[in-house]
Nucleic acid binder design. Structure first.
Lengths: 236, 236
DNA sequence: TCAAAAGTGTTCGGATTACACCCATGC
DNA sequence: GCATGGGTGTAATCCGAACACTTTTGA
């Protein structure tokens, strides 16, 4: 019995737990959205949180991120773009225990997949609105970092293509930039810029069908092989 | 009682330790240098590592980074620029135990301070040279990330000023850019660019003394208040 | 034939580059 | 004076913003 009690006692020097939280962003109908879930802990009822799980000894951090999405949101997204955002380690960020959280940023196209019953997509504009949802832990500090990272990365990497499924049109891609950045872009200049960046997108030769209102069919594209954009797509 | 038994049971799945490692860069005589130390562990004799320490329950991650610098390199650098690089969590990155490492990037001016006997500054050019030092853990993967982060951040933030002590001259600042990027810059254009960025540097009104070979005294500058450079100082 | 959406051309102004030139100091 | 490093001027060029214009479809 004493041993059991002491185990937590020894912890103080280096036993803080490691968790991975995921900020998954997607663009639906021209609006940037964030995946939030209702936390397990009943004490946090009424608030929302990024999906997160403790890291197990037999999985690396990326695996924990995928597991958090699968277990908490019912999302299997092995193809989603996943990258580390940063690690949050303030002593009291979780009031119950010392937990260091490695936060990931995930980007996916809009999916038809059913979300778990405790998961919701929130319009990021709502987070700055008059009635923002209550957020658990330090996630009110994490989320703006994630959104800013996504906005910045669209400038110098081809990450915008992670928000669309292939094949896509340049108008769809422009819609991603406009939704994430919250600005309107000049179609002509956007088109020229994208096509001038080597290996950003490659035309498939196919054309997409116009919408119900008519319009000229658009050229279809796929992701190119570029890892960085030269020159960058700078925000206005 | 059931509750008490369950607590330790849950632990094994999430008991990996958290450490902080620090990649401290400085520029000495026009060369970019990295601080490395001989690891504590005798099994790692002959190799070098970034200074690192386990995170204690009573300190946040920044505090651990400062402690690692102080305990392992004898460096007290409360004024150094310190920022998180990223977190490395591969299962076997430390062969002895599961350790997740939060790596920090630190930038300081050249210091006269005595380094601890087990600490050395290594020329980063040596790391790609014919006889690179043997590196412990996964630090051979971490160090290039740190150097690239520093190079990238000089472009769009005023971080170059973290490598010089105040007051400094524009020639000194240019020397930082040249050392970190490994390129030669046009003095006239550099000067104009720096001065055109609002609040990047502010002239003190003082002038520095010329060196022994003569030359016109240079205007002295201090760091300005800008957090981002508009427009950026792009690498050639 | 008209509206809608895709796609092209053209002009303008600001930023970047390359390099010639002037200034102040030690020896 | 002259070598050394600090600092300025300027013309050529590149790049992005703005916007007018043409093409191809549905109704």
């Amino acid at each position: 019995m004493a041993a059991r009690v002491r185990a937590p006692d020894r912890a103080p020097t280096s036993a803080c737990a490691v968790a991975v939280d995921v900020a998954l962003l997607t663009v639906t109908e021209g609006r940037l959205q964030l995946l939030l879930v209702e936390p397990d802990d009943p004490a946090l009822h009424g608030s929302l949180a990024l999906p997160g799980r403790r890291v197990r000894d037999d999985e690396d951090l990326d695996a924990t991120a995928h597991r958090a999405l699968a277990e908490l949101a019912g999302l299997r997204a092995p193809d989603a773009h996943l990258e580390q955002l940063r690690t949050y380690g303030a002593i009291a960020r979780d009031p119950r225990a010392r937990v260091v959280s490695v936060v990931y940023l995930a980007l996916t196209p809009t999916t038809d997949a059913r979300l778990g019953t405790r998961a919701r997509l929130i319009d990021v504009a709502e987070l700055d609105g008059p009635r923002p949802p209550r957020l658990a832990y330090d996630h009110d500090a994490v989320i703006p970092d994630a959104i800013e990272r996504a906005r910045a990365k669209l400038e110098y990497t081809p990450l915008a293509t992670a928000f669309v499924s292939e094949p896509f049109t340049l108008a769809e891609l422009r819609g991603i930039y406009e939704a994430v950045w919250g600005v309107a872009l000049d179609d002509a200049n956007f088109r020229r810029k994208v096509r001038s960046v080597e290996d950003f997108v490659v035309p498939t030769g196919e054309r997409s069908r116009p919408g119900p209102g008519g319009g000229r069919p658009a050229q279809s594209y796929r992701r190119g092989t570029a890892a960085r954009l030269h020159p960058a797509m700078l925000r206005p």
